[in-house]
Amino acid sequence: MSGLHDLSLASVAGDPRSAVHRRDPRVKLLGLGSVTLVAVSAPVSAWPAYAGCAAVLTGVAIAARLSPATIWRRARVILPLVLFAAAFIPFVREGRVVASVGPFDLTAEGLSTFAGVAAKTAIGTVSAVLLGATTSFPDVLRALERLRTPRLFVLVAMLTYRYVFVVAGEVRRMRTAMRARGYRPRHLLQAGPVGHAAGALFLRAHGRGERIYLAMAARGFTGTMPQAVPLRLCAADVLFLLAAAVPLVALRLTLEVMA
């Protein structure tokens, strides 16, 4: 349950020298984002569009030398939870009943909605996983900044990311201390102790956070990260974006015209 152990899942994986990893973070953000948008905006039963998206994602994963196991390890945090929730759809949608499970009726409309939703969710999740696995977090922020995200928004994201590790470190220390004092939680969610721990955690993290920030300011942090190498688009970057986005957008528009 504790997601704090899963911070490693946000780090870069695969071959860092691959053709995908070396692409400009902006084209990865836009390219993979457009795959998600094509899948999500397609009608529920637009299977050619889903197949096209899956093909592009597979191509990116192979080029980045990401194994299915790595992708699954990251998608597993979210995907089963979502599919479990979506599994209720066939029972609650009204329509032509095709089968009954106990007192519940499965409808054809519900089943096709479920299949479409599952495909869209899987494409969206894998697309975000591929971005996270091929692009470091500071690079995602640089891309957002260069794509004209407001500076304050990027700054808050930067500080949040920095302090997630502070909070995680304090959680670890507090857990160790609680175990050393013989604390054995009897329920998963004991609201009282969790609340007190949360209050103490916030104050401890904030205390360290203040000192860290002052240290950053003392070393000359002015709200942006210094960049050794400025972002510059090369021909391969443009090619990546075109290859990822153009066929899919064309396919999506063709489906629109045919519908």
Binding site: G3, L81, A85, V156, T160, V164, V167, H206, I212
Partner: peptide, 26 residues
Amino acid sequence: APLVGVTGAFVFAAQMLNFPVAGGTS
């Protein structure tokens, strides 16, 4: 700056405790 960052990180950590709800979400 530290208050914003620590609050963001705290909310981020708290939201990772997730469980599914019938009808399509968590």
